[in-house]
Simulated assay, not measured.
Amino acid sequence: MKIHTLILSVAVLLQVSMQAQTGNRNLFSKEVAAKLASLPLHCINNEWPNKTSHTSDSATDHVLLPHQLHPVFYGCFDWHSSVHGHWMLVKLLKTFPDMPDRDKIIAVLNNSFQLEKMKEEAAYFSKYKVASSWERTYGWAWLLKLDEELYTWNDPLGKQWYSSLQPLTQTIKELWTKYLPKQTYPNRTGVHPNTAFGLVFALDWANALNQPEFAALIKQRSKDYYLGNKHTPAYMEPDGTDFLSPSLEIADLMRRVLPKEEFLKWFNSFYTKEGIDNITKMPQVSDRTDYQIVHLDGLSLSRAWCMKGIAKSLPATHPYRKLFNAKAEEFLHHTLPHVTSGNYGGDHWLASFAVYAIFEDR
C-alpha cells in the first residue's frame, strides 16, 4: 500500500471510529489496528535509516552494522523504537486475536523472539566499556513494558516469546537495580532520559510480576526525587523537541507511589494554575517531516495518557479531574489522524504512543 493511501485510510478510519463510538478503547477497530500494525511490520526489519548511538571501543566495532550490534532490535531507526514497535504488535495481537495480517505479525515476532538472539542483545550491555548506560532509561522502560505485556498474556505464543525474552529482561532489571541507588538527581527532560517516565513503566512491571524489592526501591527513589517538589515550572513546557511532559510524567509516577490522600495533597502543591493552563494547550507541530519537531505529536499522546491516569486519582469534585479528562480526549482526537505523517521520522514510533494512549487505563 502506498504511504499516502495508508495515511488517508488510517485518518478516515480513526475519524469514523471517533464519531461513532465512545470510550478510548473503542477508538480502535480491528481494521484500524491492522493499518497501524503495518508501520512496525514495515520497520522492524528495515535497517535504514538508522541511529545506532553506539559508543565504539575500537576501530573494529566502529564499523559494525546495526544488525550485527543488535540481532533483534536493529530496525525502526533506533533500538528503543524497535522495542516499542514489538510491544505494539503484541498488544494488538492480544486485543484482536483475529486481526488481519495475524500470520505476518506472528512470523515477524517469531523471528525476533529467539533465545539465542536475546542472549546476544543482553550481552551487548557488558560487551563494550560504556554500554551499561546505553538506552538508559527510555529503552529499558519499553523493554520492561514489552516483557509485562507478554507475561500477562495467557497464550502459548505469549508464553514462548516471554521465555525467550528473559535473558534481556533480567539484564535490564539488574542494570536498573544497580543504577537507581547511585542516581542522585532525576532527569527532568522531555525526551528519552526522563527519569519519571522510566520509573512509571518499571513500577508497573514490578507490580505485575510481583517483584516487591524492585518496586520498593522505585517507590523510595521516586519519593527522594519528587516528594518535596512544589510549584513545578510547567508554564515553561514544552521544549522544542519534547515528546514527554516533565511535570505530567512526575505526577503520573507519584499517583502510583502515594496513597490517594497523600497524592492529592502533593498534587495540589505541585502545580500552579499558570502551569495547568499551559500544559492543557495543544502543542503546535509546524513540520511533521522534521524528525525532531514531530516529537510534539508524541507529546500530545503522552499528555493524554498521563492526564487520563491522573484524573482517576483525583476526587470527583476536584476542578482538574474534569479538565484533565476533557483535555486527554482533545489531545487524542486531534493527534490520532497524524500518527502517520508519511515521513519516517514519525512513522517509526508514533503508532506505539497512540496505542498506549488509548489502551492505558491503570
Rank of each mutant, 00 (worst) to 15 (best):
S247I: 05
S247E: 10
S247F: 03
E249P: 00
E249Q: 14
E249M: 14
I250L: 03
A251Q: 00
D252R: 13
L253C: 10
R255S: 04
R255A: 01
R256K: 14
R256Q: 15
R256D: 10
V257C: 07
P259T: 08
P259I: 08
K260M: 10
K260H: 11
E261C: 02
E261F: 06
E261Y: 05
E261S: 14
E261M: 11
E261P: 03
E262M: 04
E262H: 05
E262I: 06
L264A: 08
W266N: 00
F267N: 11
N268W: 05
N268Y: 05
S269M: 08
S269P: 01
F270K: 00
F270R: 00
Y271I: 08
K273V: 11
K273Q: 14
K273R: 09
K273W: 02
E274T: 12
E274P: 03
E274F: 03
G275Q: 04
G275H: 00
G275Y: 01
I276P: 01
I276K: 08
D277E: 14
D277Q: 13
D277H: 10
N278L: 07
N278P: 01
I279F: 09
I279N: 03
T280L: 10
T280N: 07
T280Y: 06
K281P: 04
P283E: 11
P283S: 09
Q284F: 11
S286T: 15
D287W: 07
D287I: 08
D287M: 07
D287Q: 08
T289V: 02
D290A: 01
D290I: 02
Y291C: 04
Q292N: 13
I293S: 07
I293L: 14
I293G: 02
I293D: 12
I293M: 07
I293C: 04
V294A: 12
H295Y: 04
H295Q: 01
L296T: 08
D297F: 05
G298P: 00
L299D: 06
S300V: 04
S300L: 07
L301G: 07
S302Q: 09
R303Y: 02
R303D: 00
C306Y: 06
C306N: 15
C306D: 13
M307W: 01
K308Q: 15
K308H: 13
K308R: 14
K308G: 07
G309W: 00
G309I: 02
I310D: 02
K312V: 05
K312R: 15
S313A: 13
S313V: 03
L314T: 12
P315R: 10
P315D: 12
A316R: 12
T317S: 15
T317M: 07
T317E: 15
T317H: 13
T317R: 05
H318V: 12
H318Y: 11
P319V: 03
P319M: 08
Y320G: 02
Y320N: 13
Y320C: 06
R321A: 05
K322P: 04
L323M: 13
F324C: 04
A326D: 15
A326I: 03
K327T: 13
K327W: 05
A328G: 05
A328M: 06
E329C: 03
E329K: 14
E329Y: 05
F331Q: 01
L332G: 09
H333D: 04
H333F: 06
H333I: 12
L336M: 14
L336W: 02
P337H: 09
